[in-house]
Structures are given as structure tokens and as C-alpha cells.
Nucleic acid binder design. Structure first.
Lengths: 170, 170
DNA sequence: TTGATAGGGCAGCCTTGTTGACTTTCCAAG
DNA sequence: CTTGGAAAGTCAACAAGGCTGCCCTATCAA
């Protein structure tokens, strides 16, 4: 399909003519794709009386067990009060466990319970299924480009948060 | 976490292995990038006491002037009541004009006023600036892949809506 | 001991989504 | 020319999940 392989960015400034119309299509692609991206977990969540905010909390606690409330706050980019409401229901429902920090007893280290792990898996598997299908359909080269553009779109500070996550030991 | 999923490549000769971890990174890239994507217009909107919903309405009315309320509803994927509240403030504030349809006088054809055009331009220019920078940084090939993956992620019905938009005459 | 930090709780506000019920306007078919 | 149904709009009520502001406790570190 694409015969020419050009290495973007690095050295020779590519002549990249971007019309407003091309950019608009990218913008709309983001809009529609993001809606699709959240649709599957949203359906599962609706049945359980949870929302996207719960999903996000479960996701980040799952991928970095023991992270503190403050750390989670920073990743999610919401206020303490906003997160607290969500976190409270997750703790009350037995999906998340809040342990007093060993190093610093003021901190609360967040972990998923087996029940929490189960829901997180169910949600993320739905999301992964769509992502997997899209990746397969678009092919490996497209996937690389996809990731490159998304990373370039982030703010430097968000990007470093994201990079830190990417590197996390298994 | 480390179970490998074998994905047959398009050509057949390249084997693409997608771990749950790779998919998770894609998911997080979408999350962080979408936040960045909406951040710039959100700041402008906050000053004007508008929200993202107003932006979305302005965007689609701008790119398809004269579309009906029902059509806008379908594109945005929200309820009539939800849209109506937003649309009402835009009309009251003189950003959007609602004209009785010629063909069918029950329909309301939506147009931006000069004031509406001005705000839409301001909002979309902020968004385009970020998109443009990301596109330049990532390069043309990455952009193609970006679009391919996003399109593959959409539901068929959403995709056809999106495709229809792409084709619209200038 | 004292100031700063982590977290929780409470009150209240806003936007933007939802359902449901209802009315008005209008086109088109009988 | 009447009438059924589609399109649009309105009202009421509700919920999720953002926000701010303020206050409290526990804890750590200087």
C-alpha cells in the first residue's frame, strides 16, 4: 500500500502541507474513535452502576498496585474530592483496598481486591478486544504511527507520566 | 499480563505479536492524548462559560451549515433534551441561528452567525494548532497510520458517518 | 514543638448526560 | 380536508462526576 518509507521528524524537515481540512478530519477521527474506545466498558459499567471514573481508577490501581492517593490524583488529573467519591464507593464495594503506608503512615496505598481485579479484567478486556481488532486491521506500521502521533499530541508533562508508565517493570 | 496473542499480519509474512501490555499502552495513549486534545479549547470555553458540548455543536454546525437538529443529534450521539439545552444558550447568545426548513418547515436548519463563526474558529484553531504540531513531529507516515487505526476503531455505523463527513465538498 | 503534608469529610455548585410525558407544528396519505 | 405520524420543542426530575472552599486528623520532618 505504502511503498515509500520516509523517516519523519529527525533530520530533513519534511514538507508537510496540512490544510485545515486535513486537520479537521484528524480532529473528527479523534472524536469518533474516542467515543468508540469508551463505548464497550461504558456498557458494562452502566449495568453495575459505575461510571468511567471508576474504570479509570481501577485501571491505574491495577497497573501500579500500591500507588498512593496523591499519585493517582496526579495521573487522573482530577481533584481529591472528585476522586474520593469514586474511590469511596470502590472501597465500600470491596473492589479496592486502602492500606496504610509502611514508609509513611499518612499515605494510603491502593490495591485491587480479587473482586476488583476481576472487574478490571472484564472492563479492560472489552477495551483491549477493540484495540486488538483495530491494530490487526490497520497493521503494525499504522500502529507505530498511531502511537507516535498520540504521544506527540500530549503535553510534555503528561508525556513523561505516560513514558514512566510504559517503562514500568512487569 | 504476558500472554502473547498472535496476530496474522496483512501480508501474511510478518507475524505481529500483541501482548496485553502493548494494548494497555495503546489504551493509555488514547486516554492521555484525548485529554491533551480537548485541553486547549476547554480553557477558552471555561472563560466564556461554555462547555465541550457547546464546542461540539459549533464544530458540526460549522462544517455542515444548515444541518437539522435531528441530524446533529445523530452525529453527536446525545438526546434531544441534552442538545436542546446547549443549543438554546448558543441561539440566545447569538452564536447559532435556527431557520425554519424550506423543504420541510418543521425542521430547523442550523447556521452559525458571524459571532458563532468567530468563536468556532478560535476554538478549532487552538485544537488544530496542537494537531498540526503533532502531525509535523510524527511525520506523514505516522499520520496515515494514526488515521487508519482510529478509523478501524470506530463502529461501522460511526465510521460511515465519519466517512460521509470526510467527503463533504469544501 | 511546630509547620507542612497526606488524606478524609462535608457542603454546595455546575455541566451535561439521562427518562418520561406532553404540546405544537406540519407534511402527506387517505 | 381530515388525520396519523414525524419533527421539534418544553418541562420536570434525576445522576454522574467535575469543581471550590473549608475544616479536620494523623503523621512526618526540621
Amino acid at each position: 500500500m505504502q511503498e515509500k518509507v520516509r523517516i519523519p521528524g529527525m533530520g530533513g524537515e519534511d514538507l508537510l502541507f496540512l490544510t485545515d481540512d486535513q486537520l479537521r478530519r484528524g480532529i473528527e477521527a479523534m472524536f469518533f474513535a474516542y467515543r468508540a474506545f469508551t463505548a464497550d466498558p461504558d456498557m458494562i459499567l452502566a449495568d453495575l452502576d459505575y461510571g468511567r471514573a471508576h474504570h479509570r481508577a481501577l485501571h491505574f490501581i491495577n497497573r501500579d498496585p500500591g500507588l498512593t492517593v496523591t499519585a493517582l490524583l496526579a495521573v487522573l488529573g482530577v481533584t481529591k474530592q472528585s476522586l474520593n467519591r469514586v474511590l469511596r464507593t470502590l472501597i465500600d464495594d470491596g473492589l479496592v483496598e486502602s492500606r496504610v503506608g509502611r514508609r509513611d503512615r499518612r499515605e494510603r496505598q491502593l490495591h485491587l481486591t480479587p473482586k476488583g481485579v476481576a472487574l478490571e479484567r472484564r472492563l479492560s478486556e472489552a477495551q483491549r478486544a477493540r484495540m486488538r481488532a483495530a491494530y490487526r486491521k490497520a497493521g503494525p506500521q499504522a500502529v507505530a504511527g498511531f502511537r507516535q502521533v498520540l504521544e506527540a499530541m500530549m503535553d510534555p508533562e503528561m508525556r513523561s507520566q505516560y513514558q514512566a508508565m510504559k517503562e514500568l517493570p512487569e
